[in-house]
Amino acid sequence: MPTSPRPSKTEAIIRITTLTKTYWNGAVAIPAVQGVDLTVRPGEFIALMGPSGSGKSTLMNLLAFLDAPSSGSYWFAGNNITDFSEDYLADLRNSVLGFVFQQFHLLPRTTALDNVALPLLYTGVKRKQARLRAAELLQKVGLGDRVYHRPNELSGGQQQRVSIARALVNNPMVLFCDEPTGNLDTKTSGDIMKLISQLHHEGKTIIMVTHAEEIADYAERRVQLRDGKIVQS
């Protein structure tokens, strides 16, 4: 388990300097992120924006420990992250991050309760305790009466609520949302964004990737990317 002391109010929760990520397509280098500096303070709600190919998804993957940078440095909660091995990143994702995806990514044929409890099982929490915690969070996202429903018995908005509950189950330091309303209609999108805003008001640090202006309006700060660089922050 990584050591991750909770940062003080003033300390940055995420600080990256000159971070780059280069993909190789055969012998051709594709610089997806080219020397990005960014600081995220605790409790901030940031919208990562930019046209497709701007590098916003790559940057989010790097910030969310889903990928290792090619160069640059990354401090998380005051710790310089130098070990980018798969196992260590898996531990970090499991213990300090939460994920909300555009496509929900719920396990089929599995109850909302067990979907929400899933990350805790990889932490080593006993199933019974994990389920108690999962039920608590389903209650919080307004699905207290749907705990034993399977994803195919839930509406899109309800599925996204389940996935938000799953993202919160390990009480993460940062919540990553990748186009959280991309698969939802306008009304449901509004409901989901209200829920995410509420989490922000409760003090959660949130980094959200979106291309929709009205969704980005919920965030307090926009980070605009173009050609792998931040053009406005």
Binding site: L66, E86, A90, R93, F99, L118, P119, Y122, T123, R166
Partner: peptide
């Protein structure tokens, strides 16, 4: 998904 939420 399992890997994203911490499966090694």
């Amino acid at each position: 998904l399992r890997k994203a939420v911490g499966a090694k």
